[in-house]
Design a protein around this nucleic acid. Structure first.
Lengths: 222, 222
DNA sequence: CGGGGACTTGATACTGTTCAATTTCCGTGG
DNA sequence: CCACGGAAATTGAACAGTATCAAGTCCCCG
C-alpha cells in the first residue's frame, strides 16, 4: 500500500477497508452476473476465479491468495464476469469501489497504486496466454508450480514446500489440460525427482531443473 | 469518451491527445523493455501486440484497431512488457500517462472511463484464456472471425466481409495454433460453405452456423 | 517480371484426450 | 474411533487432434 500518506488519509483508507468478512470453503465471494459494487482484498485464505461458458465448460482464470485484489473484471460493465470461490476458509476486506475512486482522486499515490494493480492483472493474463498458447504440458505444470512457489515465498512461507489448495481438475482447467494429464505429469515429475507429491502436498526438489523446463521448446537433441 | 464535460475540460482532454503520429506497416509503436510514458489511442490502422519468450517463442496477445487503447500493460512496472507493431499504415494519438492521471483526478467521468478501459482489457484477456484453455481449433477460428466481424461492424464496416491484416502465422500465434492448422481450418470452413476465403479477404457466409460452432464441446451425436 | 515470403496441402509423428478400472483420501455418521 | 461412501487421484490402453516435416503454388512487392 502507498506509504506517503497523512494520518488522516490513512484513517480514510482504513475505514474504507473496515468490513472484514469470513468465508467458508466452497462459499462464493461473488458470482458471474451479479451487480458490481466492491473490490475485495484477500486477507487470509485462497480463492479461485472461473468463467463459465453457456455449454457448461468452465475455465479457471486464476488462483488468488492473501494480499491480492479480486473483482477488477466487473468495473468494465458493472457486472461480475466470473465467479470467485473460496478454496479454503478465508477472510476478505470489501472495498466499495465508489469510495475507492473518490479517495483516489484525493490521493495520487492511491490512484497510482490502483492503476498498477489493474495493470499487473493485465500483465499476469498475458503470461497465462503465453503459457496456454505455446507451452507443452510439462512446461505448464512447471511454470505453475514455480509461480505458486514464488507467491508463497513472497508471503513468508516456504518456497519449496506447500499444500495445493485446488484439485487436479482445477489445475487442469487453469492450465488448459485434463485432470489426467495433470496427474500423469506430476507423477512423471516425481519419478524424475523434480518434485515430491503426495496428494495435495508438494515439495520442489530441484528448482533449477524446473526453471530449465520452462522456456524449452523441447529437449534439444545434442 | 465521457460526454458530460465542460468546454474547458474538453479542451484539456483534446490538448492531451494533440500529438497524432503516423506509423508505417511494420513500425513498432513501442517495444518490450522500453520505458513507459504514455498510453496510445489508435485513430486509424491496425496493430498487434506480442510478448516474446527468451527462447524465441512469441505469443500474439491481441490485435487492436481504431478506437482502442494500447499500452496498459506498462503501467504496472513503468516498462512495456510487450511489443506493439503496426500491421498496416496507422495513426496514433499519444496520451502522456501522468497528464491523464492528473486530469482524471479532476474529472470523475474520465477517471471512471479509464478504469473501465482497463477492466475491459482484463475481461477480454479472460475470454482469450477460455478460448486457449478449452476450445478446439475450429471453435477458436470461428470465435476469432466472429470477434473481428463484431469489431468491424461496431466501426461501421461490413460485419460479413473484411480483409485480414495479419498473417496465418500471427493468427496461429494468437489462437495457440500452428499456421498450417489455421490454413487447413479456414480451407475446411470454405469447403463447408461457412466462409469464403481468398488469401486475406474473408466473407462470412453463415453467421449462425459459425455462432453454433463456438460453444460446442463437439458435435453432439443425436 | 523476378524473387521471396505467404499460403496450401499431404503424409506422418506425437502429445494430450478419452474411456475405464482401481486405489486413495477424507469427511460423516454410526 | 472406526467404518463407510463418495469424491479425488492414479494409471493403463486406445484414440483424436494438432504439430511437424515436406513439397509445391500463389501472391505481392520491388
Amino acid at each position: 500500500m502507498p506509504s506517503d500518506l497523512t494520518d488522516d488519509e490513512l484513517r480514510q483508507l482504513e475505514s474504507l477497508a473496515s468490513t472484514k468478512r469470513a468465508y467458508r470453503r466452497g462459499d462464493y465471494l461473488y458470482r458471474s452476473g451479479s451487480k458490481f459494487g466492491s473490490l475485495y482484498a484477500i486477507r487470509t485464505g485462497f480463492f479461485k476465479t472461473q468463467v463459465l461458458h453457456e455449454d457448461g465448460r468452465e475455465q479457471v482464470t486464476g488462483f488468488q491468495m492473501a494480499g491480492e485484489i479480486i473483482g477488477l473484471d466487473a468495473i468494465s460493465t458493472d457486472v461480475h464476469t466470473c465467479d470467485a470461490v473460496a478454496l479454503e476458509d478465508s477472510e476478505v476486506c470489501e472495498l466499495p469501489f465508489n469510495q475507492l475512486e473518490a479517495l483516489s482522486r484525493q490521493l495520487p499515490a492511491l490512484q497510482r497504486h490502483l492503476h498498477k494493480i489493474m495493470s499487473r492483472e493485465i500483465v499476469r493474463d498475458q503470461g497465462i496466454m503465453l503459457l496456454l498458447g505455446s507451452m507443452r504440458a510439462e512446461e505448464r505444470l512447471a511454470a505453475f508450480l514455480l509461480n505458486l512457489s514464488q507467491r508463497f515465498a513472497a508471503r513468508g512461507y516456504s518456497a519449496s514446500s506447500f499444500r495445493l489448495r485446488m484439485t487436479r481438475q482445477e489445475i487442469g482447467s487453469y492450465l488448459g489440460l485434463k485432470l489426467e494429464t495433470v496427474s500423469r505429469t506430476l507423477s512423471y515429475f516425481q519419478e524424475t525427482r523434480l518434485i515430491d507429491v503426495h496428494n495435495k502436498s508438494i515439495e520442489l526438489l530441484d528448482m533449477s531443473r524446473l526453471l530449465g523446463l520452462v522456456g524449452q521448446q523441447r529437449a534439444t537433441p545434442i
